[in-house]
Amino acid sequence: MMNQRTLSCIVCPKECALEVSMLDKVVTYISGYSCERGRQYAHDEILCPSRIITTTVSIEGGVCKRLPVRSSSPFPKERINEWMREVKELRVKAPVQVGEVLIAGILGTGTDVISSKSVAQDQ
């Protein structure tokens, strides 16, 4: 079945209006994007909507109380709650570096959970 969907690109604040045409579950045509990232977003949003997920976890012995963490790349949206449950269990000890992998390949996906910040040990 042919159908069409209009999306608003959320990759950057330009918010281009994207038109996606599909035949059954196959994307046949995408228009309205101003850059390659937007085209990719439209494609992914139809097939498997994903987001960069961020939260904070507790950290011991550091100069701050909470450590901000994120998914290394967009993660499937329907599984956000599972992601949160898993990440809540994290116990991190300072020091930690920005970009350090805290959970590799979370929930069997190819994305990691990484630190969003370097935290030095509290002297």
Binding site: I52, P68, R70, S116, S118
Partner: peptide, 10 residues
């Protein structure tokens, strides 16, 4: 790149 606030600041 799409960074978080703390990463951008760092």
């Amino acid at each position: 790149e799409e960074l978080t606030g703390p990463e951008y600041a760092e």
